[in-house]
Design a protein around this nucleic acid. Structure first.
Length: 285
DNA sequence: CCAGTATCCTGCAGGC
DNA sequence: TGCCTGCAGGATACTG
C-alpha cells in the first residue's frame, strides 16, 4: 500500500528525525521477508555508523550510512554503504522511545544513540531491509531496472515512448516499475480517472496527446498526496507510513457504486491483472 | 520480448 | 460467537 507519496513522506520524516544519529545496536529475529533479513550481517555493518540523508527511488528507500568519524561535524567522505528498505504492503518504520512496547511483527530494531528505537514492523512480510554496499547498488536488479521517476519533468516525453508498443492495459503498464517507478494501485486508479482514460485500454491505443495528459495528471495527484502527507507529518514526532495514506480524498479508489465526482454515474469495479480497478464507465474512454 | 497468472504473507470483513 | 473463505496488493517467478 505504500506508494511513492507515502514512501516520500517517510523519507522526509527520516531526514527530519534521523540525520546524524548513530546506530548503537541491532536486534530482531531472522525472518523471511521479500529478501531474507540477515541480522548478523546488518549488525556487523551498521553498528557504530551514522545516518546520512535518506534517498528515495520509486518505492525504495536508501539511507546512506557514514563512519562515526563524522561525529559533531558534517558527515564527510563517501558513505560506507546504504540501508535499503522497501515497505512492501504493510511495512512500517517507527521511531519510538525505548520504553514503548514492541509491536507485533517487529522484525528489526535499531537502538540509536538518542536512546530511541527505530523499528521495522511488517505483518505481511512483503517488504525488506538489507545492507547494500556501494558497489552493489548499481547491480541490484530491483533498483537498476527501475523506470523513470514519475515526478521527473521528462515524464510527459517518456511515458508515450514507454507505452506506445505495448498491448497490455494502460493500468498494468502504470503499475510496471520497469516503466515508471513508484506508482501503485491507488494512484494508478486516480490518475486514470483524472485523465479520463479507461484503465483497460491498451497502451498502444492511446494517443500521444492523451498520454501527455496522463503524465500531467499522474504528477498532479502524486504531488497533492505528498503535500498532504507532509502536513500530517508536522503533527507526528514518530514516523508512520500510514500517516499520509488517506490524507487526500480519493476520487475512485474503493468507491465502487458511489457517484463519480465528475458526472454522477456510479463508480465501477473490475479486475485488471489481478488488481482491483475502480473507474467511471461514463467519463473514462 | 511480452502478457498474463501464481506466489509469498497476515489481518480483516463477510457469510452462515 | 466462531469458523471458514476470500480479498487486499508489491514484486517476482513462472508459463504460454
Amino acid at each position: 500500500m505504500p506508494e511513492l507519496p507515502e514512501v516520500e513522506t517517510v523519507r522526509r520524516a527520516l531526514e527530519l528525525h534521523l540525520g546524524g544519529r548513530q546506530v548503537c545496536a541491532v536486534g530482531g529475529r531472522a525472518v523471511r521477508l521479500r529478501r531474507p533479513l540477515e541480522l548478523d550481517h546488518l549488525a556487523r555493518q551498521l553498528e557504530g555508523l551514522r545516518f546520512g540523508s535518506p534517498r528515495r527511488r520509486g518505492k525504495h528507500l536508501l539511507i546512506d550510512m557514514y563512519s562515526e568519524e563524522g561525529r559533531g561535524e558534517r558527515l564527510q567522505g563517501e558513505p560506507l554503504g546504504a540501508l535499503h528498505i522497501h515497505l512492501g504492503m504493510t511495512g512500517r518504520l517507527l521511531l519510538v522511545e525505548a520504553q514503548e512496547p514492541e509491536p507485533r511483527h517487529t522484525h528489526l530494531t535499531l537502538v540509536l544513540d538518542s536512546g530511541q528505537l527505530l523499528r521495522y514492523v511488517d505483518a505481511r512480510r512483503f517488504g525488506m531491509v538489507e545492507w547494500l554496499a556501494p558497489e552493489e547498488e548499481a547491480g541490484d536488479p530491483s533498483l537498476s531496472a527501475l523506470g523513470i521517476e514519475p515526478l521527473d519533468p521528462r515524464l510527459a516525453q517518456a511515458l508515450p515512448s514507454a507505452v506506445r508498443r505495448r498491448t497490455a492495459p494502460i493500468k498494468s503498464l502504470l503499475l510496471d516499475q520497469h516503466l515508471v517507478a513508484g506508482v501503485g494501485n491507488i494512484y494508478a486508479n486516480e490518475a486514470l480517472w483524472r485523465s479520463e482514460i479507461a484503465p483497460h485500454r491498451s497502451g498502444s491505443r492511446i494517443s500521444r496527446q492523451r498520454l501527455v495528459v496522463l503524465a500531467e495528471r499522474l504528477q498532479e495527484v502524486l504531488r497533492e498526496a505528498i503535500a498532504a502527507g507532509g502536513t500530517t507529518l508536522r503533527d507526528f514526532a514518530s514516523l508512520d507510513a500510514e500517516a499520509g495514506y488517506f490524507a487526500i480524498d480519493l476520487s475512485v479508489y474503493d468507491r465502487q457504486g458511489q457517484p463519480c465526482e465528475s458526472c454522477g454515474s456510479p463508480i465501477s469495479r473490475s479486475t485488471i491483472g489481478g488488481r482491483s480497478t475502480f473507474w467511471c464507465r461514463a467519463c473514462q474512454r
